[in-house]
Simulated scan of single mutants.
Amino acid sequence: MAEKRVTLADVAARAGLSVSAASLVLNDRPGIRISPAARERVREAARELGYRPNLAARTLLTSRSATIGLISDSVTTRPWASALILGALREAHSRDHILHIAETGTDIATAAEALDSFLDRSVDGIIFAASRARELELPDRSIPVPFVMLNATSAAGDASVLPDEFEAGRAIAGVLAAAGIKERIVVLGRDIGAPPDWVDTLTVRRRTAGIAQTVKEHDMHLAAQLPLSAWEPEPGYEAIADLVDSGETFDAIIAMNDRLAFGAYQAMLERGLRVGQDVSVVSFDDDEFAHFVRPGLTTAALPYETMGRLAAELILTGATQPQQHLIPMPIMYRGSVR
């Protein structure tokens, strides 16, 4: 037989107070005229009895459910983006809230169903998240609770939390300039002078603009720009292998992400070029393997956990006015720059 659930009446009886008084204490109602000793009796009784509040009843009473809904395209299935959820989870937990997660892919109808489901459960706010920063299409309906775009923007310019990719682009190119490397630089993944095309995300455009500004400011000279449609190790490997095999010499590579940099590492290793000595390499994202390649990869880290924390904080503090919150991308200095 299942154990009987401990009720508020049980707690009140143990503490020697009325049910209404016990409720006021456990719900932290301000301005109540109950002595500190009586309040402590209520809390002690709740601990001893293992009392858990009835959330459904509390929601009816307060119109707050102590939950946040997170609707994502593919954040939970992308290892590099899961820290977005970790940050939001930790912030929600620190404020006694729970995070409910729905993954919808890019289907707007599925996202609308997830939104309706969360609203039916009286969530206190909604986070719309993307694994790769871009403008998300929101369901065509009013959203009666606070909401924030995480690693994303909306057409209406709603509150959003994004990595500061422009400053990261400036800083990562500046690492080379500070090391005295201003000649024979290869940009791997994009042509920083080309107009944005349909595959460019918001972050890519800002990242390349930041690189371009530092290149101009420091009069840096590019040996080659190698646009690639896929930023994965194999295309990075093939592009740098072809460049070396063609007889082109270069002193540094700015890779548009760590996966491209990893492919470049392998191509140079096979051809006798030493990373960090013959060729310096800088990159973006701080993927897990950036710590373990040798030499370690100098890269601008995506601050996903910090971003997730801030998104939840904005929801729970009501600070969801239309504004882009740009989070700095710290440079992780390792051995890939001479």
Rank of each mutant, 00 (worst) to 15 (best):
K4H: 10
T7C: 04
T7R: 06
A9E: 13
D10G: 05
A12I: 02
A13M: 10
S18A: 02
A21P: 08
L24C: 05
L26R: 03
N27F: 00
N27L: 07
G31F: 11
R33I: 10
I34S: 05
I34H: 01
S35I: 07
S35V: 06
A37W: 05
V42T: 11
V42P: 07
R43S: 05
A45Y: 00
R47T: 11
L49I: 03
R52M: 15
R52I: 15
R58I: 13
R58M: 14
L60T: 13
L70Y: 05
S72G: 08
V75N: 04
T77F: 03
R78C: 12
P79A: 00
P79Y: 00
L84I: 04
L86N: 11
D96G: 04
H97D: 09
H97W: 03
I98F: 13
I101M: 06
A102D: 11
T106M: 12
E113Y: 06
D116Q: 12
S117I: 11
L119A: 13
D120F: 05
S122P: 12
S122V: 14
V123H: 05
V123I: 15
I127S: 10
A133W: 02
A133V: 13
E135N: 12
R141W: 02
P144V: 04
P146E: 02
F147Y: 15
V148G: 03
V148W: 00
M149N: 07
A155W: 08
G157M: 10
S160V: 12
L162Q: 15
P163I: 01
E167D: 11
A168L: 04
G169L: 00
L176M: 04
E183I: 01
V186P: 01
V187L: 12
G189W: 13
R190N: 05
P195C: 02
P196N: 09
D197S: 08
W198N: 15
T201V: 08
R206C: 11
Q213A: 15
T214Y: 07
Q225T: 11
L226P: 01
S229C: 13
W231F: 15
E232D: 14
G236R: 10
Y237W: 04
E238D: 14
D242F: 00
D242M: 01
L243W: 01
S246N: 06
T249E: 03
F250D: 02
F250Q: 01
I253S: 00
M256T: 01
N257D: 14
N257M: 02
D258S: 06
R259H: 14
Q266M: 09
Q266G: 01
L269H: 14
L269E: 11
R271T: 00
G272P: 07
G272N: 01
V275R: 01
G276K: 00
V282H: 06
E288N: 11
G296W: 05
P303F: 02
E305A: 15
T306C: 09
M307W: 03
G308Q: 11
G318R: 07
A319F: 06
Q321L: 12
Q321I: 09
Q324A: 14
I327H: 09
P330R: 10
I331Y: 09
I331V: 14
R334C: 11
G335D: 07
S336A: 02
